[in-house]
Design a protein around this nucleic acid. Sequence first.
DNA 1: GGTCCTTTGAAGCCT
DNA 2: AGGCTTCAAAGGACC
Length: 437
Amino acid sequence: MPQLNGGGGDDLGANDEMISFKDEGEQEEKISENVSAERDLDDLKSSLVNESENNSSSSDSEQAERRPQPRPDLDSYEKTRDYFSEAYRRQQDGGFFKSPHYPGYPFFMIPDLTNPYLSNGALSPSARTYLQMKWPLLDVPGAAGLKDARSPTPGHLSNKVPVVQHAHHVHPLTPLITYSNEHFSPGTPPSHLSPEILDPKTGIPRTPHPSELSPYYPLSPGAVGQIPHPLGWLVPHLVSSRFSPHMMPHHPHGMHQTGIPHPAIVSPAIKQEPNTHDHMSPSMHSKSPGPAKKEEDKKPHIKKPLNAFMLYMKEMRAKVVAECTLKESAAINQILGRRWHSLSREEQAKYYELARKERQLHSQLYPGWSARDNYGKRKKRKRDNKPDSTPEGKGSFSLSVLLLDLSSLFRAERTPSIGLCEIVLLATLGLPLTPSN
DNA sequence: GGTCCTTTGAAGCCT
DNA sequence: AGGCTTCAAAGGACC
């Protein structure tokens, strides 16, 4: 794993984060050579942002309806994570990130995308350009030769380019530090999360030393017990942080010492007899192969902590699903993947920070756990077969995702009432897709 | 019922 | 050290 700091703290993804940002920035610079086009870009962005904000707020309320209210007996890691994310999101909505970027469309050189169809129902040239650039495998008539204008780069490839950090910008995670004021009594931000803790080399927040961490988690006495703190199941543990986590007794089968089953533990073995010794590290188990295997089978499955993108997906999936009628996760994930890349540095930083905390908590709860513990738990997946790159297969799948994108785009611009179903229906019938529809 | 699909990131494994 | 693989979430599709 890449370590920026060399010693002590884990930077936890900051490196990749920087690299990704650089790549995005460079590409946008190339796009923005033309000043007037830049102006158009800004106009389009701002309009999209406004609409996006509106959509976000509405879908937020919808989400709030769907989302079960946090309860004191919160007993699942999933809920904990959701709540954690929600606290961050609310903090964001309430303050620092006043202008969330429109989350999805890096290709802004489309002056008339608000109506990509001509009067006869055919795609306008710029819309064709857009489609061809975004979906090279799609057969978009009239778009030949335009592909190289800017082709989307897979994220894992874009991460190879180094980046220069802004050294003097406000700590991007500042609004996240105190979670939500709705839930926590206001106070001085913990020192370990203040800007001074930025990595001097990279300007990226570094992982605080455990000794720096402890003041952060204990809540105000009044807050604890009243609200389901996202880390509520952890608080007693951390309050007694003068003791090493290693010294704390282990609680079998995901049952945290608070009596709350820990969410990261998912196992059918949970109903089996308690495993009184350390359930994390295989190296600590019996040396005899037979019983060791049995022991391993009994071990509760401790899941990996979620990374930044996974946290982002968890939070945004509902929104995307609400925007589009499709529920197919593969398609949704494609959209979320592109939106992830179009997020601003600050917005991504939120999730990197969330993920960093997740890993911190996870490592504190399961000091002996290693990702290798979960290796081989799933059936091996075949990675070699990629014959799906045929124009038909890939194109048809991409088309559905494209439609989702267009659906969002139309909503954001001129046709808030039109949805994916309508677009699909119109496309199927060969009818022109106009705001009047 | 199990696996695949699809995404990104973290971490382990292998050369 | 660098590249490759696995797993994390999600839910429909498929066998």
